[in-house]
Design a protein around this nucleic acid. Sequence first.
DNA 1: GGTGGAGCACTTTTT
DNA 2: GTGCTCCACC
Length: 857
Amino acid sequence: MTEPSKQPIHGVPEHQPVAGGIAARARAAAGGPQYLSGLNPEQREAVETLDGPVLVLAGAGTGKTRVLTTRIAHILSQGRARPPEILSVTFTNKAAREMKLRLGQMLGQAVEGMPWLGTFHSIGGRILRVHAELVQLKSNFTVLDVDDQVRLLKQLLQAEGIDDKRWPARMMAGLIDGWKNRGLMPSQVPAGEAASFGNGKGGKIYATYQERLKILNAADFGDLLLENIRLFRENPDVLRGYQNRFKFILVDEYQDTNVAQYLWLRLLSQAPSRPGLPLSAVIPGRLEEANPESRDQEGSSRESGLAPDSAPRNDGSPQPPTRNICCVGDDDQSIYGWRGAEVDNILRFEHDFPGAKVIRLERNYRSTGHILAAASHLIAHNEGRLGKTLRTEDVDGEKVTVTGSWDSEEEARAIGEEIEELQRAGENLNDVAILVRASFQMREFEDRFVTLGLSYRVIGGPRFYERAEIRDALAYLRTINSPADDLAFERIVNVPKRGLGDATVQMLHDHARKRRIPLFEAARAVVETDELKPKARGSLRDLVMQFDRWRAQSEVTSHTELAEIVLDESGYTEMWQKDRSADAAGRLENLKELVRSMEEFENLQGFLEHISLVMDRDGDAGDEAVSLMTLHSAKGLEFDNVFLPGWEEGLFPSQRTLDEQGRAGLEEERRLAHVGLTRARRRAKIYFATNRRIHGTWSTTIPSRFLDELPAHNVEITESKGGSGWGGSGGYGASRFDNLESFGSSYSTPGWQRAQANRRGGQNRGGSGFEERQSSFSGSRSGTSGGFGQARRGPMVIEGELVAKSTGTVSEFSLDDRVFHQKFGYGHVVRIDGNKLTIAFEKAGEKKVVDSFVERA
DNA sequence: GGTGGAGCACTTTTT
DNA sequence: GTGCTCCACC
């Protein structure tokens, strides 16, 4: 994390990173500070506009990180603030690390003094620890991961007598997470939503869960922000302290912020309010003024229900002035809507921060002309965007290629071959990436690469600290550090096996609840009694004694040594050594890695505080290897050669997203496609397969509609291997990719031309949408849908306009035709709108349906 | 209390 | 096809 300083551009006095030193040198350079040279005019403006709110719309590859880091350097060198007075938040640890690294290169040692550069969660957690007692926690509180969360919820559900088959704990965890993302405390959850779980008990569970967290001295991920917001709201003086401290706020990836993050930023970015001013005035209401048109999803659960106590803005009292907040983002790269991110935040920035200056960075320094044109054309199909026109001064380069193959195996084979070819041509494998939509796609590539002997690395995947052995080890350390951490104790009480099974644990629970003491203390008490069988009793006594000993040792031994001792004496290491399964060796290796990583921290406490937040595996960029990752984790990266497999309806755009988010989901998928394309510097290669295995069974798929949205001029259709055989069946209608042979290099198929014509005149918003989509398809969704059903389901979820765009077909039905529908039965056509039919059913009444769902009767 | 087999659900994306 | 959970048996 701490980067040994590379060649500092400006020699900064080693210890005290005071601005004066930099500034003096910087100003000495003729023609302005050296760090500003090489910036284009827009970038320079973004760096130099220090006062007031600034939104930098930075398209892909336009030098976003450079602007952020240079801006910090500029603030420091101008003497406008000292490092601890700058709050700089990112989303990922990777991004934070990258910024620290670059700042280090720019300023030398000064990074050491940037204590407030980090992720939302780590900074939130840090603030929370300082004021823990104000939110009913102790400063050494534990951060729970999803697994702990679910286990705790399972207990609570059981206590409430809720059947966890029907209402899984995982689902409840998801709900709570969603509420927290939206800044909702238990009392603020809309009644309807609270009741939607567990026969109306959802809200109660949430409240109990929060209470339990306090008892366990624990916070979950969402709490790191939500409790922070509560802290600020309930303690105006604390808030003021931070408002005064942070003279500048910088936010990376603003398009990914959720409501909670927005509120948090909002609180911090106001000028300190006058004493006595009700704090609620500081938080502008957003719900009240939300633009209903911007959300065409009826009943959208993403509707941000804001805290009721947030007063509407402009209630007469003057708006407190906004501080120097600079948000950098790209609405076209917002791909975390499903996790509660509100694209709205960036779309409404000027509204939220009056007087904001908006700067667009549109010059792309990454991709060649064809790639950029393809990406831009694709993303132009989205409606809810601020609009940027990326341009490049680079050469056109190679066209984007689209290749169809018979099935996913062939797709992997073809990509493998192409990569080998690139390799022979002298390309470095580190400059090659395969970006997939969903992680299950990776397997096929891994299999293929293993046979080819092609080295690859998977980026993302299960986080290091999510592995069972790591969590077990951490649970031991947590129990030592915090005897109240029941979840940790429970996790390892019988790992390795000690003959302390469910019955014993249940007993401990009863005991603990009755006497209102932690599990561990209950264990200590129980061994003194004869409530347990001698065997269990002895084994539990040993465990309690061991922990006592370890705790004593933790006072005198270094935390790394302690960890080794604990893992050894507990028998945990031995357990894996005896394990004969294939991955046992890897697990032992991971444990060693864990101990090694502890050295970076001063003590056990410090280590535990950070582990759950900052511990992500740095993709050991050792040898040359192809990178394999999801599109999501590719954001922010770039490669010379990018392979984009799996562009098929249902997979990409993902059916699930379409089902759940409708049109907004489609736009998000399209942004994902845009992110994928813009990762490429020189070559972008798209693939689709006609047959893909889903849940172990093969099903036929249809080329993605996104292929139809690529500009002909910048795309080359390459030879498909494995011949033809896919027909435009499945009720989807013709796509220009149905027949590659005839398609050739000219975009002359009827389907393409129709699509074009459709697009030109295509501003007819299907305003009413498809009321029927729920009812007509819910039937086919249940059960194991065959391949046909899968494919059919694809396009129709989307509003009529889009279906029409892709198929371009004029309905084969005419008015008054008598038709039959699987679900609604017989009826006759009363209206035709492209391929949308309005049909008066004899039983079901008037409905709108897509023509492919009815047949002539 | 521990182990192994059978049946099940599942496939986005993650700080 | 796989990985997980649950249940029955040892």
